[in-house]
Design a protein around this nucleic acid. Structure first.
Lengths: 161, 161
DNA sequence: TTAACTGCAAAGCCTTTGCTCGTGA
DNA sequence: TCACGAGCAAAGGCTTTGCAGTTAA
């Protein structure tokens, strides 16, 4: 996964998609434009609704498939922001890194200082009149063993490909 | 939600259940015992499998309903530990606070120092030969406004009840 | 006694997938 | 031209719910 550190221009994105051997379809362009124009995270359904305003025959499956592709390419970031972690939210990659607290009452998303966690967070919450029910970090990646395997795999592909 | 700071004894738990106006059924006792005896997080299916060894007619729906009740009572903590956040994992409340990194390769859960996040985590990962793909904090609770509303609500209930 | 609880099966919700037709390069 | 991609509808995986019978208090 590429680590994109600024919001990609349409040209950046187009190049990235093409270099990875994918086609630039009208649907992909549209979804990319919509994502680039958004300030906040969207779920697939919301993006689908937006896209439908421009191209009425786009399908939800395409939205999901496109989001998946964009995430793989590092063009889009996916997060579980819902209070119950039911659905995933997406935004264009390269924005400021945010952590959110989602309000279980109204669903509001409150940005949280990235250095804050656990006991620190509890103090912070109290100081701001918030009620913090759960605070935990979510990490994903590859463990030592899998990291090694993947490095070996990459080395083999370099030799053979 | 009550904040439990040590693993509840069966008596603690029984009292908590009864005080909240719920019944202590054999299924609830069994699930509580099983959860208390576990060292790690379990998903509903795994708990169901364990429970089935003792009481063969217990249903998965009951496991889910019971877990939901226990979480509400603060007896159990729920977490999305799965690499893809597909399913929820549970353990008895009051244990040490842990954060995990889930390996996208093998699903292994690697405990993470709670103070670590983001850039700190990246350094930590590199030092340990891990590959960190995503790192973000997950907070849930009530925002300022909802906290206020809930406090007022609680006050009203104190007066009327 | 009776409201709370259980088991069962069906439904729900978000997301993915199989298939066939369409289309970018 | 033709492999990749889109639309549609159906399936999948985890979780919840409706219902009717059962049970704790």
């Amino acid at each position: 996964m590429n680590k994109i550190t600024r919001i990609p221009t349409p040209e950046d994105a187009e190049a990235l998609i093409r270099e990875a051997g994918h086609r630039l379809t009208p649907q992909r362009s549209l979804l990319l434009d919509l994502l680039r124009s958004q300030k906040t995270f969207l779920d697939a359904e919301q993006l689908y609704a937006l896209a439908s305003q421009h191209e009425k025959d786009i399908s939800l499956a395409t939205v999901y498939r496109t989001l998946q592709l964009f995430v793989e390419l590092g063009l889009v970031e996916a997060r579980y922001l819902d209070p119950e972690h039911k659905r995933e939210y997406y935004r264009i990659a390269g924005g400021l890194e945010y952590h959110y607290m989602t309000c279980r009452g109204c669903g509001a998303m409150i940005p949280v200082d990235p250095d804050i966690i656990e006991h620190v967070a509890q103090d912070w919450a109290k100081a701001h009149g918030l009620t913090l029910l759960t605070a935990h970090a979510c990490y994903t990646g590859y463990c030592q063993e899998c990291t090694k395997k993947r490095q070996e795999q990459a080395a083999r592909e370099d030799l053979s490909g």
